[in-house]
């Protein structure tokens, strides 16, 4: 399945390149086509993970930079799991930083006391709650899917999105998530069960 995806983005339209024909130009074009093919799904995966689009865009940009810098010379068939390895790592970093910030904020609030009137964060919308206008076109079912995916634990969500949406096989998913194949199967099974329970009324 990974190879099918790789062929799909490699066959897509590419912009003309004056250096076409040289190995460097071929590599540049292939990277461009690969990133072009994966960037939207990567953004959505990041968005499910962090809960808002701004942070998701920053993470995807950082992920693209790191991927190109470190893995551009790897075989193209290895790019999908490597890209998702980088993305998964960036999402993990985000959650760690978020936890540290939350811990410090809680500590400061305990010391100085909480003052909701002067807290600028009080006026910021909860990123984990989808804006109503954001999913009007997709309808209620799509919104329910968003909410259900965001409610999943990180590892379960990653296993589900990489296996079901990205089409990575178990080995590549394990590589992308830096865990065993058995863990992937466990996370995926639990994710499917949780999603099915949450979406039963929408999908029947």
């Amino acid at each position: 399945m990974t190879h099918t995806l790789a062929m799909h983005w490699m066959d897509s339209d590419r912009p003309a390149n004056p250096r076409a024909g040289t190995p460097a130009a071929r590599n540049h074009d292939a990277l461009d086509a690969f990133l072009r093919g994966i960037e939207r799904r990567a953004l959505r995966i990041a968005e499910f993970g962090v809960g808002n689009r701004e942070d998701a865009l920053d993470i995807v940009q950082d992920c693209m930079l790191a991927f190109v810098r470190n893995y551009r010379d790897k075989p193209a068939t290895d790019w999908p799991p490597l890209f998702h390895r980088v993305l998964d790592s960036r999402l993990l970093d985000f959650h760690r930083r978020h936890q540290v910030r939350s811990r410090w904020r809680g500590w400061i609030e305990r010391i100085v006391g909480r003052d909701d009137d002067n807290d600028p964060l009080a006026n910021v919308a909860d990123p984990r709650v989808p804006l109503p206008c954001q999913h009007v076109a997709d309808g209620e079912t799509a919104m329910a899917l968003d909410v259900a995916l965001r409610a999943l634990p990180n590892r379960q969500r990653q296993a589900f999105l990489l296996r079901i949406w990205e089409g990575l096989d178990v080995a590549d998913t394990a590589r992308a998530m830096a865990c065993s194949e058995g863990s992937v199967k466990t996370h995926l099974s639990r994710a499917m069960t949780a999603l099915r329970a949450r979406l039963e009324q929408h999908h029947g």
């Binding site: 865009l57 693209m64 930079l65 190109v68």
Partner: peptide, 14 residues
């Protein structure tokens, strides 16, 4: 934004 991010990544490649 995605397009800009992709171009920046490709330009940053050594």
């Amino acid at each position: 934004r995605l397009n800009q991010a992709r171009q920046a990544a490709l330009q940053a490649a050594p």
